[in-house]
Design a protein around this nucleic acid. Structure first.
Length: 193
DNA sequence: GTAAGGATGCGCT
DNA sequence: GCGCATCCTTACG
């Protein structure tokens, strides 16, 4: 949408099955407004983490101080810290009371690339979940942010990616999970061509 | 209070 | 392909 204001993804978008949300977030535009500047990228990789029965998900161990946000209303940011140095960005999905979220794993940088370079300090900018948080200045200050109303973190609507351009694979970095969880094809990627 | 390990990235081999 | 950085969260007691 050139010269107009793009529609933002609504609460209803996120209040759906997590696999649907993860798949449909592909090709949507993640926008971070940082010090008055738009930093954005097209979402090209996501993962679904679904409920207390998913041994790869933080919600597997039930409600804790950390995971409480996953039990809250959809359309909020679940930002967490891991490996002693990395931030991860997720969006809460499904109905309030059911713990689920979509991890944003990679972006194709679009706007504010020079600022992203400065924030990130090296290339590539956003081809991993920790890298994109660095490039977009996302940390715990954005935990709980309502991305359906926020002025500093939201998602703008773009065309749905055709099925032919969507690939699904098992999730990454979950060797601690049980076999069924490790095998589920809950990672979604925008095909390269 | 303490210990174990992680939804990763980087640099070196 | 492998080891490591580095600290928060959790579990257990």
């Amino acid at each position: 949408m050139i010269g107009g204001m793009a529609a933002r993804l609504s609460r209803r978008f996120f209040a759906r099955p997590t696999l649907t949300v993860a798949r449909e977030l592909l090709n949507q535009r993640l926008v971070r407004v940082h010090q008055g500047e738009r930093l954005s990228g097209i979402i090209v990789e996501t993962e679904a983490y679904v409920g207390e029965g998913d041994s790869a998900a933080h919600s597997f161990h039930g409600r804790t101080a950390r995971t409480a946000i996953m039990y809250g209303p959809p359309g909020h940011a679940y930002v967490y810290f891991t490996y002693g140095m990395h931030w991860m960005l997720n969006f809460v999905t499904e109905d309030e009371g059911f713990p689920a979220a979509v991890l944003i794993r990679a972006l194709a940088p679009a706007e504010g690339i020079e600022t992203m370079r400065r924030l990130r300090g090296r290339e590539p900018l956003a081809d991993g979940p920790a890298k994109l948080c660095q490039a977009l200045a996302i940390d715990r200050a954005l935990l709980g942010e309502d991305i359906t109303t926020s002025e500093r973190l939201f998602v703008e609507r773009r065309p749905r990616l055709p099925d032919a351009k969507v690939r699904a694979t098992p999730r990454i970095g979950i060797g601690y999970a049980d076999a069924p969880a490790r095998e589920r094809p809950w990672r979604f990627l925008a095909a390269h061509g």
